[in-house]
Design a protein around this nucleic acid. Structure first.
Lengths: 114, 114
DNA sequence: TTTGGTACTTTGTCTTGCAAGGTATTAGTT
DNA sequence: AACTAATACCTTGCAAGACAAAGTACCAAA
């Protein structure tokens, strides 16, 4: 009972914090190499950053519409073709902003804790 | 033009990241000392964490309804009485969860950057 | 009694995350 | 040829939450 309630709470807490940095994580990943949606989900999961399709697909589309990403189709060794996303120059600019913003947030939290 | 667009973007980026840690910051502040809404806004602003009334009041009420906070009325030297919020035991438990969650997120980002 | 400062609250809009359900492609199996 | 399983991508509907803006209330000084 108690334990269950705690777990639900804990998940909420983590989920909320994750939201704030999701777009940042996408750009971080794509800055290293192009990837398609399913593989992004897998990688984020490995990094403890849970994302589901219904979240990621619209997010990628938003970032593409903002000019931060572009995509190309590539055949898959098995199954339907994959939509490979790549970061654009504008995306890299935004990523730098995000790096700064992230650093600021971390510093701010440290300040509040002090 | 360019500069303006960039500023808007930058603000969005920061705003989104802030959202994820807002509740955390409130609990961090209240764990140190009781405070009323207006003073919380002032302190967060000093720490570069912009919040407005329309955001904070509902948030405090939510946290109170979750049993994380309680409040008492105190007279003000000038103006209407103040609603002083104080963190509860349950709130401190939650705060510990949040400390862990925050540490995890920071680590996760580092991992993705690596 | 009006003005200014302080404080709390609510309403309406917009964005976003996510569960759930849907479509499409390919390869292997029956 | 039909079925199954695996892989991918996409959409819809709901709910939560941030915030601008407007509203209410209290107090003191002019």
């Amino acid at each position: 009972m108690r334990a269950m309630e705690k777990n639900v709470n804990t998940e909420n807490v983590r989920a909320q914090m994750r939201k704030g940095v999701l777009e940042y994580c996408i750009l971080l990943l794509l800055a290293k190499e192009d990837a398609y949606a399913s593989s992004i989900i897998t990688r984020l999961k490995e990094a403890n950053m849970i994302v589901v399709e219904g979240t990621l697909y619209p997010l990628l589309i938003r970032q593409k519409n903002q000019g931060l990403l572009q995509y190309r189709w590539e055949e898959s060794p098995q199954g339907p073709p994959r939509k490979y996303y790549a970061i654009t120059d504008k995306g890299r600019e935004q990523l730098e902003e995000m790096n700064n913003a992230w650093q600021e947030i971390v510093t701010t939290i440290e300040n509040i804790k002090n």
